[in-house]
Design a protein around this nucleic acid. Structure first.
Lengths: 413, 413
DNA sequence: GGGATTTGTTTATTTGCGGCACAAAGTCAG
DNA sequence: CTGACTTTGTGCCGCAAATAAACAAATCCC
C-alpha cells in the first residue's frame, strides 16, 4: 500500500484527550439546551467526576453558565442546570451577494443576535469597495454584539463564486476575478477598528453557507444529514452535505450544478459551453419562457408566481419545463451522491408547488437506487430563503464548539 | 443550532490515546517501508521513549518485525530496522463479477500474497450458488495464506450492484435483487471451515473497491488523493475518492454515473429511462456504433482497438462519439465533485489514446473552475484493469492498520 | 422522620506521555 | 588506536486526566 492513504494525523496525548472531551461536553450541553453534569456524564459516557472537572473549566472560560436547580421530576438531589453561555464568543457571518450585503452575529447557542442588511447593487463595483462596505457593516454588527457582551471569534465571508484558499477565483455574477477576499476584508475591518486585535477571516461559496444554514438552522429538516442543496437565483448554485459534513471538493469548487448539461447541443451559455442547466432553469430563462421580462428580478418572479397561481398556462408550462430539466440534472447528481433529500432554495422555493411534480417525476424515473420512487418526501423546499450569512456565522460557532480551549486561550494571549 | 450537527463521537481517555498512537506508529512504519524507532519518533512527533513502548507492543502483537541494524550513513549508533510483519494478519478480498470470481489475500504491507481467479458466467445463476462458489475459492485462498503464516482478519466482498447494509439491493448485470450477500457468504464459508472462528464479512460495490485499489496500489497516481473513477464494462460504474476517502453516500449508492443523462429524449435504457450515458458509452453501444457485434464482449473490444489502431474511420468515430458523451457527463460530475483527476478504467483503458481527446475537449469546455483547461494531465488511464479484489482486501488491511490493538485482542479472546 | 435515590465533589489509583539521564554502538579526526 | 562526538534505545520520574469508590447534600416517598 502506498503513501497516499492519508497523511498521518497528529499524535495524541493528555492534552488531546482534554480538548476532545471538553468539546464533547460543551456540545452535549449545546445539543441538549439544558443539562446537568450527571446527565451529560451518562450521555457522553464519562464519569460524573470527569464531567465536573470539564464543566468547571468551561465555566471558567465562560462557554457555559449555571442556572438554578432542576426542580424536575422524581427522586434524588436536583442537579444544577447548565446552559451554553449567551454571552462571550460568537460567530460573525458576512454574505456578499449581487444586490445586497448581509452580516449576522450568532451566539454559541445558535441564535441570531445581530443582523444587518444593506441593499446595494454590487455588480461591476470594485471588489475593494464592496469589501470595505461589508467591513463597515461588520464593524457595526460587532459594535451591537459588544453591547450584548458578545465577541465574535472570527468572521466567515460567503459570496457567489468559486473561492479557494481565501481567494475568489471567479465570480461571474459580481464580475470578479482573482480577488483576495480574506485579505482585503481583514484589512478593511482592521482599518475601521485599529485598536483591536485582527479578526481571523475565512471565506466560502455562498451556496455552501446557505446549505449549512439549512443543516444547522433549517426547520423541518431534523435528522436529514445528507442532502443536495440548490439555490436558483441569477445563477444556479449548489452544495452537498453528506452525513452532516459539507463536501467542498479537492479545491473547494464542489457543487457547481448550474453548468451541468441538459442538452449538449442546447443554447449557448455565458460560460462558453452549450446547453447548461442555467439556460433552462435559471431565473432569466424561467421568466423568458413565461413571457416575462428576463431581467425583472424579484418582481418578475413574484409576477410569475401570481400568474401560476391564477393558472396561466404559459407560466405553468414554463415552470414545468424548468422543472423537467432540473429533474434531469438533479437525478444525475442524486445518482452520483446518493443523498437523503434534495432541498430547493432561492426562487424555486416560491414556485415549489408547480415545480415539484415535474422534478419528482424525473427523479422517480431516473434515480437508479429506486429510493426516489418509493418515498415521495425526499424533494423539499428549503426552509428559509438564502440565509447564507447565518450559515457563515455558524461555521465560526462550530469551530469554537469543536475546540473551545483553543479559542479561550487565544483570547488570553 | 440544532441537533443534526453530528452525533457526538465517543469520549477519549488514555486507552484512546494509546490506540491512536499505536496505529500512528504502525502506519508510519508501513508508509516508510523501513524505519527505526528514532525515525518514527521524529516523524510522528512522539518521544523516542513513547515510540519504544508502542513498538514493543506492536512487536508483541506481531504487527511489526525487527530486522538488522541500519548500517546506513553518518555518525551515531545505528538503529534497529523495523518493518511491517509479512506474516500474521491479512486482508481477504473477494470480487464477484459477471464472468469470473476472484479472491485475493493482501498482507499488512500491501503486497498480494495469494490470488485465485475462477472464470464462470454468473449471469442468472442463483446467488447462493455463486456465493458458495466464491466461498470455496476463499477457503482455498485462506489455506494458501495459512501456509505463508497469514491469517485474514476479515473478508470484504465486492460486486457490481447497489449494496447497502450487507445486502445487494439490485445487481442488474447479475440479475440479483435483495440478496443478503454478507450473511450468505459468511454462512457458506463457515460451512466449509466448521472448526474455525467465523470471519467478519463486509461488502461493497465493485467500482468502489476498484477505485480504492487505484488509490492504494495504483502506479503513477502518487499524490492524487481526490479522483473520479470510471469503469466501462457491460454497465458503467463509478466511484468517488475525496482526500483519500471513498465517498459512499448516505446509503452506499454513490457513484452511479452510468445513468446520468446525455439526452433526455435519447434511446431507451434498460433502467427504464431515456438517454442514459450507458446507451452512448457503454460497451455494447460502443461496439454497435463501430459496426461490431454488441455482444462480442472482450473479443469485441480487442477488435475495436485493432481497427482503431489501423485507422478504421467507423471505429474512430464510434470512439470519438462515446468520448464526447462521456466528456459531457464527466464534466458534470467534475463540476459537482471537484476532483483532482479522472481515472478511466475497464474497456476505456485500452481505448484511451483515441478516447481521451474527445473527453478532454468537453472537460476543457465545460468545467467551470477552468482547472481542466489549464492542466492537461488530469484525465488518466487507470493503472490496472479492474483490481477490485485487491482493493477489497485493502479495505480489511486498512481497518487493521487503523486499530491494530482491536484486532490483536480479538485474536486472543 | 427515615429510607431510597440521585447529584456533585473529594480522594486515591491507574496509565500513557514528556523530560531527562544514561548506556550502547557507531563515525570521525588526529 | 584512542578520545570526542553523535545518535539510538531504554530506564526512571513527574504530570495530567480519567476511573473507581466513598461521601455529603438535597430531594422524593412512604
Amino acid at each position: 500500500m502506498k503513501n497516499n492513504l492519508t497523511p498521518l494525523e497528529p499524535k495524541a496525548d493528555k492534552a488531546t484527550v482534554r480538548r476532545h472531551n471538553l468539546s464533547l461536553v460543551l456540545r452535549a450541553v449545546h445539543d441538549a439546551g439544558e443539562a446537568t453534569r450527571a446527565g451529560v456524564a451518562t450521555h457522553v459516557g464519562l464519569t460524573r467526576a470527569a464531567v465536573s472537572s470539564l464543566v468547571e473549566q468551561l465555566l471558567e472560560y465562560g462557554f457555559v453558565s449555571e442556572g438554578g436547580k432542576t426542580s424536575s421530576g422524581q427522586a434524588g438531589r436536583p442537579g444544577t442546570v447548565l446552559r451554553v453561555a449567551r454571552s462571550g464568543p460568537a460567530g460573525l457571518g458576512v454574505e456578499i451577494n449581487i444586490d445586497y450585503v448581509a452580516v449576522c452575529v450568532v451566539d454559541l447557542a445558535g441564535t441570531d443576535r445581530v443582523r444587518l442588511v444593506e441593499h446595494v447593487d454590487n455588480r461591476g463595483v470594485q471588489p475593494s469597495e464592496v469589501l470595505t462596505r461589508a467591513a463597515r457593516l461588520a464593524a457595526r454588527a460587532i459594535g451591537s454584539a459588544a453591547e450584548q457582551d458578545l465577541a465574535p471569534a472570527g468572521a466567515h465571508v460567503a459570496l457567489p463564486g468559486l473561492v479557494t484558499g481565501g481567494t475568489v477565483r471567479q465570480a461571474p455574477n459580481l464580475g470578479w476575478r482573482r480577488v483576495a477576499v480574506e485579505g482585503l476584508f481583514a484589512q478593511a475591518l482592521l482599518a475601521l477598528r485599529p485598536a483591536h486585535r485582527p479578526l481571523p477571516v475565512s471565506s466560502d461559496n455562498e451556496a455552501n453557507a446557505a446549505a449549512l444554514a439549512e443543516l444547522w438552522f433549517g426547520a423541518g429538516t431534523e435528522g436529514v444529514r445528507s442532502f443536495l442543496y440548490l439555490t436558483g437565483e441569477i445563477g444556479i448554485g449548489g452544495a452537498l452535505v453528506l452525513k452532516g459534513e459539507l463536501l467542498r471538493g479537492a479545491h473547494g469548487f464542489a457543487g457547481e450544478i448550474g453548468h451541468m448539461v441538459v442538452d449538449p447541443e442546447g443554447p449557448r451559455c455565458r460560460c462558453g459551453a452549450r446547453g447548461c442547466l442555467e439556460q433552462y432553469a435559471g431565473q432569466s430563462a424561467l421568466l423568458a419562457a413565461a413571457g416575462i421580462d428576463a431581467d425583472a428580478g424579484v418582481q418578475g418572479v413574484a409576477e410569475l408566481e401570481r400568474r401560476a397561481r391564477k393558472g396561466d398556462s404559459a407560466a405553468l408550462s414554463a415552470i414545468e419545463g424548468a422543472g423537467r430539466r432540473l429533474g434531469v440534472v438533479v437525478s444525475g447528481a442524486v445518482n452520483l451522491f446518493d443523498p437523503d433529500a434534495v432541498m430547493l432554495g432561492g426562487v424555486y422555493r416560491e414556485l415549489m408547488d408547480w415545480l415539484a411534480p415535474a422534478v419528482d417525476r424525473e427523479l422517480a424515473l431516473r434515480v437508479v437506487s429506486g429510493l426516489w420512487r418509493e418515498d415521495g418526501k425526499r424533494l423539499r423546499a428549503s426552509s428559509s430563503r438564502g440565509d447564507a450569512a447565518r450559515g457563515a456565522a455558524g461555521v465560526i460557532v462550530r469551530e469554537v464548539l469543536a475546540d473551545p480551549a483553543a479559542y479561550a486561550e487565544r483570547d488570553r494571549g
